Amino acid sequence: MRARFPGLAVLDETTYVEVSDALAEAGFPLDWDPERRRFLPKAEEVRAGRLAL
């Protein structure tokens, strides 16, 4: 986050959970990807159903 927003005052103790909550509250619901160590857009849900023929 510091690289993307250098002027943002982020404490070293801030967790990804706190950032995720703040993003959701601000209208940016993102999911934390621990492997990539970054926030990504939420995966779209796939709905099971039948096709109308």
Rank of each mutant, 00 (worst) to 15 (best):
M1H: 04
M1D: 10
M1T: 00
R2V: 06
A3G: 11
R4S: 15
R4E: 15
R4Q: 15
R4A: 15
F5L: 15
F5C: 14
F5K: 11
P6G: 10
P6M: 04
P6I: 04
L8E: 11
L8W: 10
A9S: 12
A9Q: 13
V10G: 08
V10W: 10
V10E: 11
L11A: 06
L11V: 00
L11C: 00
D12G: 12
E13S: 15
E13L: 09
T14K: 04
T14R: 09
T15F: 01
T15K: 01
Y16A: 11
V17W: 07
E18S: 11
E18P: 02
E18W: 03
E18G: 05
E18T: 06
V19Y: 09
V19R: 06
V19H: 06
S20Y: 02
S20G: 08
D21H: 05
D21P: 02
D21L: 03
D21N: 14
A22P: 04
A22Y: 00
A22Q: 05
A22L: 10
L23Q: 05
L23Y: 00
A24C: 00
A24P: 00
A24S: 08
E25R: 13
E25W: 05
E25H: 09
A26L: 11
A26V: 05
F28W: 12
P29H: 10
P29D: 09
P29L: 09
P29I: 03
P29W: 03
P29G: 11
P29T: 07
L30V: 06
L30C: 03
W32A: 09
D33V: 14
P34Y: 06
P34L: 11
P34K: 10
R37E: 15
F39E: 07
F39P: 12
F39Y: 07
L40Q: 14
L40R: 07
L40S: 08
L40E: 14
A43L: 01
E44K: 14
E45N: 08
E45T: 14
V46I: 12
R47L: 10
A48P: 01
G49K: 05
G49D: 05
L51I: 12
A52M: 02
A52N: 01
L53H: 12
L53M: 11
L53V: 13
L53Q: 13
